[in-house]
Every structure is written in C-alpha cells, then in structure tokens.
Simulated assay, not measured.
Amino acid sequence: MNMLMQLVFALLIICFLPLMSATVVQDFNHVERCKDSLYMGTPPRGIVDTNLKKICQRYADKPRYVTLYDPHKRIPVYSAYTFKKTEGDRRVDYPWMYEPQLAEVDGNGNMLPFPTGYLHMKFEDSQAVLDDYSDVVLYERGHLNPDQHQSTPHDRAATYTLTNVVPEIREFNIGPWREYEERIRVRLNNFCRGTAYIVTGVTTRGNMIRRNNQDRVAIPEDVWSAYCCTDYDRNAPHDVRIRFPSHAALAKNAKESNSVHEMPVQELEIFLKNNMDVDQNLQLFYDNCISPSPLPLYLQHTI
C-alpha cells in the first residue's frame, strides 16, 4: 500500500469514528431509535457550544433517551425523553452508572455501573464520578430525566447515570422540584393521549463543586423543563387545557425563593436566550410543538 493509499485509509477511519461510537454521536439520528426521544426526531436548536457531547443513553442494548453533555462542566445541558405513564413510585436500588463512550470509542455503547475499585483517570477527566458527590452536604444528585417519569425497570435504571444528573440543593430537589415532577406526571398521565416529549435542562453561572482543590462539577443556577404533547384531551378542564399542547417551567436551584414557575414554552425560550450560550434561533420543540388542528366535520369525508 503506497503512502497516498495509507493516508486516504487513515482519513476514512477518522471520518467514520463518530459513526462507530454507539453512544456519543455527531447527530442523534446516527443511532437507531435515538431520535425517538425527540419530538419530530428533532433536538432543540440554537445551542451554540460546539464542545458539547451528544449522548444516546443506552442501557441493556437499547436507546432510552438523549442527553446533551458538557464534559468541561461535567453536567448535562439537558436530557430529552419520552414520558411513560406510571404510578410515580420511586426506586432507589439501581446502581449509579457512568458513560464509557465519553472517554473512549469502543464497547457496545451501554452505560456501565461504577466499579467498586479503581476507575481510570481518563473517565474522571471526561465526566463526573461518585467521589465528586460523596463529600458534598448541600447538594444531591438531581435527575433531569426522573425515574418516576419512566415505567419499565430498564427505562428507570437508565436514569441512574451521572450524565443525567446535576447538583441540586437538597431542599429544592426534595421540595419544589419533586412536587413539580409529580404534578407533570399526573397531568400527562390523565390528559396526554399520545406521546409526551420532555426536555429538562439547566443554566450555570460559574459556581463549581471542588474536589482536591480542582473545579469538578458545575452547580446549576436554574433548572428548567418543557413538555410537548399534541394529542391531548380537548375536553379537559380549562385550567389544564391551556397548558397543552406544550408548557414549561423554571426555578432557582436554591435553598429559598426556589418555587417553580410554569409558563408558555416561548417565555422560557426568551429567558434561556439571555442566560445560556444559545443564539436567537433557539427553539426547544420543532415548529413550537404546534398541535395539528382537527378537520371540520364537513371536510373529514374528503380524506
């Protein structure tokens, strides 16, 4: 093989490396069914930072949801998932996991439980590890995709990866934010007839959890969430119906003044344009989650 052929072959390998990775991808559509976690298969648009990693969160050889991850701040920017109807009970017996694909391109792409012994430094460099949270009193590991919004054991287990959690003030995590997650669970259980798509994320201001005199994990300033469900009960009470097909929420990750404010998605997007590294084209849901209008009766026979 001459030198030119070797160079071409090497370039081809480099070009296809992102496609070979089963988990960290250039585009969520590169992994089978990964886009199913996104409304119209489309991720939020307008996020500027090109160093963020797109993770197709795989567990037991199946894509479960997607996360946009910041390996420098070692927290997710957002997780996007489909809501599964559930009774809302919480499970805490799942092992915490990490994402091997953030550090190396090999394996089958599944998240893995943290080992009881040594974890290579290359994984600590690319993501948060259990030691980052072990001696922190003020903060808890707060899920962006919460287990009580999932139904099967595998879908629930997949939420217990540190690439899906952020440091949340304990009083906020077990108080206003958990109450909001439960409120949304009940609302979507009762009034969403089709698939509900949820995107939950954070903003940061530079505060960090430190370990061994090093900045390790960014502490969110705000936590936000938005859902989209175009097939909903149009006979629902008015105060529920006005929160469809989409609605959003925003709260301070704080010990006090941390109540959750619900709002239209477009209002949340205005806030995020001023508080995140995004451009003015930011849009959380494709075409603003416009609900298709039912045809008038006199036109239905024409279909």
Rank of each mutant, 00 (worst) to 15 (best):
M5P: 01
V8D: 09
F9W: 10
I13E: 11
C15L: 14
L17Q: 12
S21R: 01
A22I: 01
Q26V: 00
D27F: 09
D27G: 05
N29V: 11
V31A: 11
S37N: 12
M40Q: 15
G41I: 04
P43D: 06
I47C: 04
T50C: 03
K54W: 13
C56Q: 08
A60M: 12
D61M: 12
K62P: 00
Y65T: 02
Y65G: 05
T67H: 00
K73N: 10
K73D: 11
K73S: 14
R74Q: 12
P76V: 07
A80T: 08
A80S: 15
K84F: 01
K85W: 00
E87K: 12
G88H: 05
D89F: 05
P95K: 08
P95M: 08
E99H: 03
P100L: 04
Q101K: 05
E104R: 14
G107Y: 12
F114T: 06
Y118Q: 10
M121R: 09
K122G: 03
F123M: 03
S126W: 01
D135I: 02
D135P: 00
D135C: 06
V136Q: 15
R141Y: 05
R141H: 07
D147M: 03
P153C: 09
D155E: 13
A157G: 03
L162M: 12
V166M: 02
P167T: 06
I169H: 05
G175F: 07
E179P: 00
E181P: 06
F191Y: 15
C192L: 08
Y197R: 00
T203M: 05
T204L: 08
I209D: 04
N212G: 03
V217D: 07
W224A: 01
W224R: 01
S225V: 06
Y227M: 04
T230Y: 00
D233G: 08
H238T: 12
D239K: 05
V240W: 03
I242L: 04
F244Q: 02
F244D: 07
S246L: 01
A248H: 10
S259L: 13
H261K: 15
E262P: 10
Q266I: 10
E267P: 01
I270S: 14
I270W: 06
F271P: 09
F271D: 08
K273M: 15
N275V: 08
Q280W: 05
Q283K: 14
F285R: 02
D287L: 09
N288A: 15
C289Q: 07
P296G: 03
Y298N: 11
L299D: 13
I303H: 03
